[in-house]
Structures are given as structure tokens and as C-alpha cells.
């Protein structure tokens, strides 16, 4: 709690500097009715930000594995598919990809005879998940490669096929090395979800933008926005550290 108390106190201190009359902290002053309403409006985007991030991260974790496995195969063409996907997706900036998915993908669907509209919610999730999957795939790769080759050889000599080797031997061992970096990647998704505001998703950043338009107080509102992300990320970081400790403890057994 102390951690986000400090920036909040800083804001309060800054509000004391309003002698010149240029400050307008009143827009987010919880002691006034208007300020409290504004704060509630801003924080109400939190649910969407979290929901988008969680769904996108879940898809990315599955998609990343699907992308990573061909990269570990003995087949050169499968490995090539993996490389192309990772290099291609990794090189696309998030914003252009978001535009492409939101405005472009429905046209692609339509030309194929499907009438699938993409709303801001799913547009944001699809973009974040695909963009992130290239990174999760690389995390899986390093995790899988960190398991000694002897393990898959031993699995092979007791008759396990590639899928069984991954499922029962490699992944259970890789998972404890993969979890902390995957959780870190979740922080990246939370922050990048701010881009969803530009296609009209009602999340934290969008709420702040809308309030700025009506209140003309960008400094104060965006300051609070930053604090909102800070709090969110600090909570996740604490979770990641807890996870790392837990995994580390397992390793020593």
C-alpha cells in the first residue's frame, strides 16, 4: 500500500501549488461531488482494461505454445513457419496492427463470405493476443530449450512420440521456468491495452481522454491515469514476485 501512497501524496502536494491558479486538481478531488464523480468515471474503465488484458493474455499463452512447438520440431519447414510467424508478428507495431484488425479484418471476412463484425472489445483482444503471442512463443522456446536434450532422448527411447514427449516430459519441467517471464509479459499486455482507446474501447485511457475533452484538465486527469496503471502494474508485479519465489522454492526441493 505504501508504494502507491507516495505518488498519491505527491499529487496532493502538487495541488497545494495552485497559488498561480493554473492547477485544477479540483477535477479529481474526492472531497467534492464533481471530483468524486470524475474519479469514479475514470476508475470505471479499470474493469475493461483488466478483462481485455486477461483474455488477451490467455489467448496469447495458448497461441504462443501453438506457435512455439513447430519451432522445436525436426522438420525444417515447420521450423520455418515458426520463424516467419515470430519475425513477422514481432515487427508489426501494435497501433497499425490494431487498425488493420479493427478496420481491415472485417473486410477480409466479408470478401470470404463471412459477415463477422469486429467490435472494439474483440478487436483489442485479437490484436493484443496476436502481437503478444510472438513474444510468448519465444519464451516457450527458451524454456523448452533449457530442458536438457537427454530428457527428450530418454522419452524417445521409451516409445513416446513428439506430442507425448512435450506433454509429459518437457513442458511440465519447462513450465516453472516459463511462468515468471510469462507473467512479466502480462504487464506488457496491460500497458499496451491503452491502445484500445483509439478504436473506442471504454477502458482506462479512453475514459481519461473523454474526461479531458469535457473538463480541459489534461495534466490532472492524465496524472491520475498514470497512477491507475501504476497501481495495477505494481499489484501484478507483486504477484509475479510471489510466483517467482514459489517456483524458486519448488526448484530447490
Amino acid at each position: 500500500m505504501k508504494k502507491f501512497f507516495v505518488p498519491l501524496m505527491l499529487l496532493v502536494l502538487l495541488s497545494g501549488c495552485s497559488a498561480s491558479g493554473n492547477w485544477g486538481w479540483y477535477v479529481i478531488d474526492p472531497r467534492t461531488n464533481g471530483g468524486w464523480t470524475n474519479i469514479k468515471f475514470l476508475i470505471s474503465g479499470m474493469g475493461s482494461t483488466i478483462l481485455i488484458s486477461v483474455i488477451a493474455a490467455t489467448i496469447s499463452i495458448v497461441l504462443g505454445l501453438i506457435v512455439a512447438l513447430p519451432g522445436q520440431s525436426g522438420n525444417r519447414w515447420l521450423r520455418l513457419i515458426n520463424r516467419i510467424y515470430v519475425e513477422f508478428v514481432r515487427s508489426i507495431p501494435l497501433l497499425p496492427m490494431l487498425f488493420w484488425v479493427f478496420y481491415g479484418l472485417p473486410i477480409v471476412f466479408k470478401s470470404m463470405g463471412f459477415n463477422i463484425p469486429i467490435d472494439p472489445f474483440w478487436g483489442a483482444i485479437i490484436t493484443l493476443a496476436i502481437s503478444d503471442s510472438a513474444f510468448t512463443a519465444e519464451i516457450y522456446r527458451s524454456g523448452i530449450q533449457s530442458i536438457a536434450r537427454g530428457q527428450s532422448e530418454a522419452a524417445q527411447t521409451i516409445g513416446l512420440n513428439y506430442y507425448q514427449t512435450m506433454r509429459y516430459v518437457i513442458l511440465p519441467q519447462a513450465v516453472r521456468r516459463i511462468l515468471p517471464p510469462l507473467a512479466n509479459q502480462f504487464i506488457y499486455i496491460v500497458k499496451m491495452s491503452a491502445f484500445a482507446s483509439v478504436i473506442g474501447m471504454q477502458e482506462l485511457t479512453r475514459r481519461a481522454n473523454e474526461l479531458v475533452v469535457t473538463e480541459y484538465r489534461p495534466l490532472e486527469i492524465y496524472s491520475l491515469l498514470i497512477v491507475e496503471y501504476l497501481v495495477l502494474v505494481l499489484i501484478i508485479s507483486a504477484g509475479v514476485r510471489w510466483l517467482e519465489r514459489k517456483m524458486g522454492a519448488d526448484e530447490r526441493v
Binding site: 537427454g150 532422448e153 524417445q156 527411447t157 516409445g159 519441467q173
Partner: peptide, 17 residues
């Protein structure tokens, strides 16, 4: 042949988990 010919490795290669 996988599983038809057993193999014992220098480093044992037991599954530690």
C-alpha cells in the same frame, strides 16, 4: 522402433519431475 530398443544413458536421464 521407439520402445523396442531400450537405452541406458551415462547421465541416467530420469524424469526429475
Amino acid at each position: 522402433i521407439q520402445g523396442e530398443i531400450g537405452m541406458v544413458f551415462q547421465q541416467f536421464n530420469l524424469f526429475p519431475h
